[in-house]
Amino acid sequence: MHPETEASFAELSTTVRAFRRRIAATRRGARLARLLSIQQLAEWGVPRGSDASDTAALIVAELAANAVVHARVPGRDFELGLLLRAGVLRIEVTDTRADKRPMVAAPPSPDAESGRGLLLVTALAERWGVVEGAPPRKTVWVEVGV
């Protein structure tokens, strides 16, 4: 077998696991997104309470909260997507406010009650970004190792 063929075969044999769910853009929906991500990861073999599960749950909680608080449009849901492939988990949260792009600001003052979410995501993520979708959608994605 040629090395190129072996690499191609290895890529094809990699298991890809995917989960996608539309969720009401409410505070309860943001909580549900976090709980669903923990459950789905457990079904894929990432134990509850592990560093990987806790990190993913924290990131999902932040992205879902941002979708609900900053990008909510009454009557429109947000979407949670999880993709696990070759030890990398990609978390995606899609909302209907492409005009509200997340930005990492300067660290807030120590007594501030908000403004740390994306700083936390940045610290935990291997990489993250924003992709515009079909108007008026955008997807915030984060990749972490599991």
Results as ranks from 00 to 15, higher is better:
41 L>P: 03
43 E>F: 01
45 G>F: 02
45 G>T: 02
46 V>F: 01
47 P>G: 12
47 P>H: 12
47 P>V: 14
48 R>C: 03
50 S>V: 09
50 S>N: 06
52 A>L: 02
55 T>D: 10
55 T>M: 04
57 A>S: 09
57 A>I: 01
59 I>N: 05
59 I>C: 06
60 V>C: 05
60 V>W: 00
60 V>H: 03
61 A>Y: 01
61 A>N: 05
61 A>H: 05
63 L>H: 05
63 L>K: 12
63 L>I: 06
64 A>S: 12
64 A>M: 10
64 A>G: 09
65 A>E: 06
65 A>N: 03
65 A>T: 05
65 A>I: 04
65 A>H: 03
66 N>L: 00
67 A>C: 04
69 V>R: 06
71 A>F: 12
74 P>G: 12
75 G>V: 15
76 R>A: 09
76 R>T: 10
76 R>P: 03
78 F>M: 06
78 F>K: 04
78 F>V: 08
79 E>G: 07
79 E>S: 09
79 E>N: 07
80 L>R: 11
81 G>M: 14
82 L>I: 04
82 L>S: 14
82 L>W: 13
83 L>F: 04
84 L>C: 14
85 R>Y: 10
85 R>T: 09
87 G>Y: 04
88 V>S: 11
88 V>R: 11
90 R>H: 13
91 I>P: 00
91 I>G: 00
92 E>P: 02
92 E>R: 15
92 E>S: 15
94 T>Y: 02
95 D>F: 05
97 R>D: 15
98 A>T: 10
100 K>Y: 05
100 K>Q: 06
101 R>H: 07
102 P>N: 14
102 P>I: 13
102 P>S: 15
102 P>T: 12
102 P>Q: 14
103 M>C: 13
104 V>R: 15
104 V>P: 15
104 V>Q: 15
105 A>W: 07
105 A>Y: 09
106 A>M: 14
106 A>E: 15
110 P>E: 11
110 P>I: 11
111 D>A: 08
113 E>G: 12
113 E>Y: 13
113 E>D: 13
113 E>T: 14
115 G>R: 00
115 G>I: 03
116 R>G: 10
116 R>T: 09
116 R>D: 12
117 G>I: 11
117 G>Q: 10
118 L>Y: 14
118 L>M: 12
118 L>V: 12
119 L>I: 13
119 L>R: 13
121 V>M: 01
123 A>G: 03
124 L>I: 10
124 L>R: 06
125 A>T: 01
125 A>H: 01
125 A>G: 02
126 E>P: 01
127 R>E: 15
127 R>T: 13
128 W>M: 13
129 G>V: 03
129 G>D: 09
129 G>L: 08
132 E>D: 10
132 E>A: 06
133 G>H: 07
134 A>L: 01
137 R>Q: 08
137 R>A: 06
138 K>I: 04
139 T>A: 03
139 T>G: 02
139 T>W: 06
139 T>V: 07
140 V>M: 11
140 V>T: 13
141 W>L: 07
142 V>F: 00
142 V>Y: 00
142 V>A: 08
143 E>L: 08
